[in-house]
Design a protein around this nucleic acid. Structure first.
Length: 308
DNA sequence: AACCAGGTGAGGA
DNA sequence: TCCTCACATGGT
């Protein structure tokens, strides 16, 4: 299956989008980016005004790819809404065409459970390992690829098997969420229908003092909602974003919150739950309905410029 | 050899 | 509710 999507006048930069740390299974080989969508492997390449897509999946429709890369988002409109200051304006200019993408919710959820307290190269390695060990195999252009493992496959894995993928202490969290999802204890389909606050409650809820989804805290929940559930106002705060906020946006916060941020950056203290939510809400107020887009530009810019 | 990485859960004041 | 600590692993 091969088709090309018309990008005429659409701001879109495939490279910036796939290199921005929101999805972990894309790899650049030559002029192509290779990835695996829920239904199979695909390779994509950008020309001046079109996106060329090649997949072994005969049922893959161009519509699915449009949705995945969110090509129907009016990026100029997004820019006009979030361009509030020189910092974000510069990031937009540098990474013009970077888009949020709409990932599969289950894959995104597991990815950001794995993404805690580690770095992006190792996140990619761990995810690649579990796909190879537990994912269904598919052939594309003579090479073997692995689909992302279904919930049942990871629920059925032993903690040792998962740990052997390099997950470390995350193994028990991954097994736990896989069990909750595969038994239907938690429904991921409903998340897109709920508003941001309610969806975040579902992901982070405690029943009788016990967490339903182990390994998903405030930050992971925000990433999942932003990258797979269309909650564009979600504003995840990780160590990079804390640095950005402390350095360029301290005036947006009350003195005590600004201090907590700098103290958090220098590892003296951690952000309390209330502090995280307060700061994140301030950024939602500041950037508006597309605050998550702003976050992604600032995050990518901070990483690429190796912000101190 | 400490320290860091897209943090989180558990336990106690 | 907040603070503190442990946690697997691989790279500097």
């Amino acid at each position: 299956m091969e088709f090309r999507l018309n990008l005429a006048n659409l701001p879109f930069d495939l490279g910036h989008t796939l290199d921005s740390g929101q999805a972990f299974r894309w790899a650049q080989r030559g002029e192509w980016w290779y990835g695996v969508l829920p239904n199979g492997p695909i390779k994509v390449r950008q020309e001046e005004s079109s996106l060329i897509c090649v997949s072994g999946d005969e049922h893959l429709e161009s519509h699915s790819v449009r949705l995945y890369f969110r090509l129907d988002d009016d990026l100029e409109r997004v820019y006009s809404k979030i361009m509030k200051d020189p910092q974000i304006t510069e990031a937009i200019q540098r990474y013009y065409g970077l888009r949020l993408i709409q990932q599969d919710v289950w894959e995104c959820l597991v990815s950001f459970v794995i993404a805690t307290n580690t770095n992006i190269p190792r996140i990619k390695l761990m995810i690649s390992n579990i796909c190879e060990k537990f994912g269904e195999k598919v052939t594309f252009e003579g090479d073997q690829y692995s689909l992302f493992p279904r919930p049942e496959a990871l629920a059925g894995a032993s903690r040792e098997e998962l740990a052997s993928c390099g997950l470390g202490y995350r193994a028990r969290f991954v097994k736990s969420v896989a069990e909750k999802v595969s038994t239907g204890n938690v429904s991921l389909d409903e998340l897109k229908l709920l508003d941001y606050e309610r969806a975040k409650e579902v992901l982070t809820e405690r029943l009788l003092g016990e967490k339903t989804l182990l390994g998903i805290g405030r930050k992971a929940a925000d990433c999942i909602l932003l990258f797979s559930c269309g909650k564009d106002s979600a504003f995840p705060i990780d160590v990079w974003m804390a640095k950005v906020l402390a350095k360029y946006y301290p005036k947006l916060f009350h003195k005590d919150m600004a201090k907590r941020l700098t103290s958090h950056v220098s590892k003296e203290t951690r952000l309390s739950g209330a502090a995280y939510e307060s700061i994140s809400a301030s950024m939602r107020d500041y950037f508006g309905e597309y605050a998550g887009y702003a976050q992604q530009y600032l995050f990518h810019d901070a990483r690429k410029s190796n912000l101190a």
